[in-house]
Amino acid sequence: MIRFVDATKVYSNGVVGLKNVTVRVEKGEFVFVIGASGSGKSTFLKMIMHEEAPTSGEVYVNGYSIHNMPRSEIPHLRRSLGIVFQDFRLLPNKTAYENVAFAMQIVEASPREIRRQVPLALGLVGLSKKAKAYPNQLSGGEQQRVALARALVNNPSVLIADEPTGNLDPKTSWEIMDLLEEINQRGTTVIVATHEKDIVDTMKKRVLILERGELRSDEKKGLYINEN
């Protein structure tokens, strides 16, 4: 469960990232976050993963309070989250399998757990056959699937995807979105920041629209509303 209570972020250079945002995302929800660049979308996501802390107000994520969070707690918060980026961020010198396994090594999983979980995660994203391929041998869509497998392998309760289809063609984008929906149906909360109007309008999920740091609308089964 994620809760923003009057959360405001003012950067040290005076730029306002978020302004008095209050919103609540329940466990198992699928939420789109949309808005132009500079709308506060990234700040919103960064706050959930504690890359930024609110300058005032509060943010609660999976029982952790982001404001005044002790440093030593951050890794534990992050372990309850799965994070996917627009540019995949895979390690080029590791195979698909090793990239996913890396995420488990970092949280000190046993070799046995790793051998069991990594194939499951790769299977979930439909990449079992490409386990030994290196990122440069995979298409963009496949790379994003590896990134998804990596995000999911430690069983996070929340998946955060920052423009996950920004670098992909429409057909592949849909495949990734279908996958995200499937993941959501298995009980994981999914939060997706995106620019893709078609996808948002078709999927009819909850939509948060941010504008200049403020939450402009919050609709169940919302549409991508163009500002003009």
Partner: peptide
């Protein structure tokens, strides 16, 4: 730096 970034996002302990 890329590995370090990923490690941070996945929740590696500082010491790690």
């Amino acid at each position: 730096r890329r590995e370090i970034e990923i490690m941070k996002y996945v929740g590696a302990l500082d010491g790690f």
